[in-house]
Design a protein around this nucleic acid. Structure first.
Lengths: 109, 109
DNA sequence: CATGGTGTTCGATCCCTGTCGTACAGTGGT
DNA sequence: ACCACTGTACGACAGGGATCGAACACCATG
């Protein structure tokens, strides 16, 4: 039938403007999450699925990190078949927290 | 004798440029510490002693927070008699982490 | 020197969260 | 239908850090 091929598994996205500073900082304070964000900053297209990241954690943990990033308004996710694609919400987040993203992920360490 | 009246209780200060991003974010992620930094941002003179802050924690905990802030290169401390005065190292820290401090403490929440 | 005030140090406790294994749900291809 | 692949949900575990009380060090002033 496929009334709508977009099952989308009920993905809830929040407006970065509604995200408390505490939540944003908690999300950015984790090195694994920053690693994800840096990767997404480079690949600004919708090409990175959750499983394509080279992370030092198991997939259950990675899934948790993506959930935190989404709840903090830092990433947007979209289902494409079995894969879940990610995008860095840089413009929206920059509007809500000017300078925070750049100060956090534009760095060597 | 007072060869040097500056006992200073061996206060070690680090160069903000040598502080790892992780340490800076960990320091900024705590609400009590951000409260201290906001207070210091307003009073840029050397007038705030550790005990003069209105914090929701006991003095032992407050002392711990000041220690973390100093280790992160965010504040400078100077002993004046029995009191320990504090100063926000905004210019130094801004040079090491452009935009991070402003994004973190210039806010309502 | 005795006292009160300021701040640190040391243990102990508690809670939060990052981590993982396993089980489960969708998807797509064979 | 079956299977491989992708990602989530749930329960459990361990480590770290925030918190506190109590003891201690240092300073200033009677």
């Amino acid at each position: 039938m496929s009334v709508e091929s977009a099952r989308a598994r009920t993905l809830s996205h929040v407006d970065p403007a509604e995200v408390p500073l505490q939540a944003a900082l908690d999300a950015l304070a984790d090195p694994v999450r920053r690693s994800i964000l840096r990767d997404l900053a480079v690949h600004d297209d919708w090409t990175r699925a959750c499983g394509t990241f080279d992370l030092p954690v198991k997939k259950a943990t990675a899934s948790h990190h993506f959930s935190v990033l989404r709840a903090a308004g830092l990433i947007e996710q979209r289902d494409e078949g079995a894969r879940r694609l990610n995008r860095l919400r840089r413009p929206e987040f920059d509007t809500a927290f000017p300078g925070l993203l750049s100060a956090t992920i534009d760095r060597a360490d």
